[in-house]
Write a protein that binds this DNA or RNA. Sequence first.
DNA 1: GCTCTGTCTGGGATCGATCCCATAGACCGC
DNA 2: GCGGTCTATGGGATCGATCCCAGACAGAGC
Lengths: 348, 348
Amino acid sequence: MKSGLTVPDGFPPARRPTIREVAETAGVSRSTASRALTGRGYVAPAVRDRVREVARSLGYVPDATARHLRQQASQSIGVLVSDLNNPFYAGLAAGISQQARKRQYTMMLADDGGSPEVEAEAAEAFVALRVAGVIVTPVSAQISTYLARQRIPVVEVDRQFSLGACDAVMVDNSSAARQVTSQLLDLGHRRIAMVIDEMHWTTGRDRLAGYRAAFAAAGVPFDDSLVVSAGWDVDAARIEAHKLLSRPEPPTAVFAANNVLAEAVWRAATELNLTIPDQLSLVSFDDVSWMSLVQPGVTAVAQDPVALGEAAISQLFERIQSPLAPVRTVLLSATVASRGSTAPPPAR
Amino acid sequence: MKSGLTVPDGFPPARRPTIREVAETAGVSRSTASRALTGRGYVAPAVRDRVREVARSLGYVPDATARHLRQQASQSIGVLVSDLNNPFYAGLAAGISQQARKRQYTMMLADDGGSPEVEAEAAEAFVALRVAGVIVTPVSAQISTYLARQRIPVVEVDRQFSLGACDAVMVDNSSAARQVTSQLLDLGHRRIAMVIDEMHWTTGRDRLAGYRAAFAAAGVPFDDSLVVSAGWDVDAARIEAHKLLSRPEPPTAVFAANNVLAEAVWRAATELNLTIPDQLSLVSFDDVSWMSLVQPGVTAVAQDPVALGEAAISQLFERIQSPLAPVRTVLLSATVASRGSTAPPPAR
DNA sequence: GCTCTGTCTGGGATCGATCCCATAGACCGC
DNA sequence: GCGGTCTATGGGATCGATCCCAGACAGAGC
């Protein structure tokens, strides 16, 4: 059980050792000590080893703050997501964290809870900390503009506010949505509702567009009253879904635009004793773990949040390397995980 | 739609403005500019307003790096969890993030994936960044010792490695485990298995102890072969659970020591077509959202990870304020969310 | 008029690490 | 013997913000 932690010999010092103390103890100048520790510039091998040994024995850890101030370049990135309690954002953060670690970067994480004000605060904190770059699931157009003006590289993930102004990484929302909707149409459904949170961001807009495109391609007339805005949290959405499913002429299938909405629809269906898939078919965007736990499993568009996070961070590092390269939007494809939640519509 | 982001007038400057530029533009010295912006020390009101206006118009954001170097105190805390993809840890991070934001602190987040080596790396990064304090779900005893020796306040959450050496915040694992186990015993179960990941950390040890205590209190003999070590990931655990449930004399109830293991048991039961609760009763530690989505819902010990995170951070700030106060272990109580996954054992 | 107090401002040192530059010695070739 | 190259080291400036301290000035009190 070897740990990489260098524990200083003896009792802890009252003050943390600085490079000056390392240098004095080793009998060299600060410059030489710095060269010995960073490995940049000439140092006699014997001196290098002696300095490193002294540093180890003192438990010296260089002050990243001071280093960054001098070098005008930090080794941390800022990450801003909307809700860590949502497995999608948590997975995103997990993927980013993994890759950042591999590149010896640390991650500042903030959760804006969907609020533009909090997002703005976090952005300013990132600027103050002079992070090397920021990855954000934006809730306003301002943030990317602001960070860009501060000359901080930004990558928008999951949704895109600054089209063409900064890099972005997303899944192909439109074609994935079209694909699952087509499956429902092929099964014979005609009254397919879409439960959605918002329609102005790229996520909502494109998923809605894909859904409509499927209707158009199938030559099926489209009923606007079946597109339901259901808000942000599970409870509010559950109530909306409940209303939807209790209509005199209810939908025979529901496409939920994300995992929170899918949960809401699922709960509403349970409340109403609707059996899935016999009385109601359900498909969802976002494949999260409960969808394969329930009976029947929920057919879902599986976008891999970890992969999305990884793609975002590699895009960010490319941007840091070449700030002037043309702006890029990366579209990952999403697969459909087919499970048991769909069936032909009930005969009337 | 007002955003708090101060966007500099005109085109972005080639270099980020410093306090020196703010001072020169406002026609004052750096000292005065600093006083005007921080609000510490004498400044004529007219001057203060002029300086602030100039700072705003230049889009000046003070360099936290430089400030912290000078003040020898940072406004960030380090948070180290085991797996962001696990809703428990994600919730913990969410709670901490919320509270940190309220106190104007930023959060450095790292995910060690359960590895002591990665944990050690992250600890060193936190020291290098001179964070004000660290909250950790530890995977080794070294980390708290190391950070303490570096004079960085630490709070251990969820489990405790450095008993009495540093603050800790946990739920009362033992009595919660005892409580759910007693419920199963009261229903008439005798062959109650416990599926667990490890038994050396406080979490595993105490939950196991609670389980045993319930047997002792009920005067029911205890069968060691029903305590199953099932490893860390869902798949490995599912296989172990499958074996357990396929034994010639299978348990009539299972107590899963955490949400991952509960998921594994649930999946194994599904594979074996065991109906819950008629053929098998299931209870779990950790109440995560899928447990109320499946049919029947899973009875679970509900520890609120967000509350746990909040308690940890307030403990951390108290520690930062009074470094010499006696070490404290905070025990939060956990409630049992009773759902439909338990019933009397099947008649033989 | 002189001191004293309170208001207000600027100069310079400081935090810790890095890095440019000067310098010194060794060694080589001509 | 001398210039040139290479190795190795230390001095001092630097990054950006803060803060101690000295000092200027105004107004009050004697």
